[in-house]
Design a binder for these strands. Structure first.
Lengths: 247, 247
DNA sequence: CGCGAGCTTGATGCCGATCAATGCATGTGG
DNA sequence: CCACATGCATTGATCGGCATCAAGCTCGCG
């Protein structure tokens, strides 16, 4: 299914088919059942926004008004502590939602920075709330999305709390390739959008350690690494690392 | 506090009065504004459940049906990876909500274990959804709660990803005392409900390191530690550690 | 009383941080 | 066009924090 906005005139290979990969498509589906809901949804996601590479979609401290669905591109989020330490809690690709952290206090609590030129759908939260009142399934779907974010975060905590460098990087690559695969990309070949430092921040490692671990994987024949181009040669070997088969 | 100790079956006391004492009233209050909403809410949280120390409120893999609001007591959640590693993603005290992780896939993804004899309000999710459709403010409040959980998780990630043992423990104590203080308890004296191992699992440390760090804090005059009884002697000193004022 | 769960403390070793140098690609200005 | 700066990645050497292994302690409880 595609975003209702395009219904009726959308060819299968229409450029706007980015929406067919969008997580929010599940949101739109139940709403689209009603013609009225369709129009309302049209209104809701009518606004788009472009974010150039390196620019911030929002920053910590900015008032929260909208959620954002990534249409194209790639983002990292980034929280900073008082003393300058910072942490990347997540990377976000097409079809994923940004800004959920802002609802709690009506203020964004992290920066969302584009790692490549990107486009997002702007979802005005108040309007969205109105709409989800009327469409139960929309409401439920939204709860699911937030819940999954919580579960995802718990997974990262497990990683940060108890895995060693190799396992962390293997888990990271596994996760990334899965998400890319779900979007129709190759599961064995990818181009990283983020620096070694970003990866390190996400995984709780220093960039040198990330680099060394990439090299080690390459020596072991698991990967082929060339700067940001990665080719996975031994998927099973990588997953074995994630599962904790060590020693 | 007039917490009834006789909750063998369904609560014989009137839920209205019970809810007015519940720390979760931020959820209930907006609904309570309307007499009709109040009755509906009564219905919703009519069920209570007692969980003895050491028992699980729910376990990973169990079908998700309800959220739980902690009335009294103390819980830890616990996720396990395939290879036996496990991680405590959070501790939950009176007034906090458990089970948000289950919404995403209709299955609980972690265990919730009582660390002391506890009581929870059972909030049937479907019913809750119905109610929150009718009361915008209830819906919004629920979104807030989920959002704050996400923000909280990000904070833990920052801790796990970039802090050292002393900072982690200091942050943990700071957080715990704040939450206790908000509930009317002393901010300088507390009894830990969890073992050193639980703390370690939460903080990504081994129990020996937790123990050693407690001892170190004591030597430095920051704390007085006697098994699980903690007295904070130098609040400022502790916070300085959290803020990362080192070297 | 003895047992076990939980806590403390010591000794040792390893993983990853830190410091440092180099390589490499891109961009910029003279 | 070259000289130079800048950002990112790789690799080596060294160090330190925490894990690991191990022993002994305390306390509650059958």
């Amino acid at each position: 299914m595609d975003m209702p906005r395009d219904l009726g005139q959308l060819a299968p290979d229409h450029p706007k088919s980015a929406c067919s990969n969008c997580n929010l498509r599940e949101l739109c589906l139940p709403v689209g059942a009603s013609p009225d809901g369709l129009d309302r949804l049209d209104e809701l996601v009518a606004t788009r926004r472009r974010v150039a590479r390196g620019e911030a979609l929002f920053r910590a401290g900015m008032p929260f008004e909208s959620l954002y669905a990534v249409r194209t591109g790639f983002f990292k989020t980034c929280i900073s502590s008082a003393d300058g330490r910072d942490q990347v809690p997540g990377f976000h690709m097409a079809g994923e939602v940004l800004g959920l952290d802002g609802i709690g206090q009506d203020v964004h609590t992290c920066d969302a920075v584009a790692l490549e030129d990107s486009q997002v759908c702007v979802i005005h939260y108040r309007q969205f709330q109105e709409l989800s009142r009327e469409f139960t399934e929309l409401q439920h779907q939204f709860h699911r999305i937030m819940s999954r974010e919580i579960v995802r975060d718990h997974g990262v905590m497990l990683l940060l709390g108890s895995m060693r460098a190799e396992e962390r990087l293997a888990a990271f690559l596994h996760n990334l390739t899965q998400r890319l695969h779900a979007r129709g990309f190759s599961a064995s070949s990818l181009v990283l959008r983020m620096t070694r430092e970003d990866i390190g921040s996400y995984l709780g490692l220093k960039l040198e350690t990330v680099s060394r671990t990439f090299s080690k994987f390459q020596e072991e024949g698991l990967l082929e690494v060339n700067k940001r181009e990665i080719r996975i040669l031994d998927q099973a070997g990588l997953q074995a690392l994630v599962k904790g088969v060590c020693c």
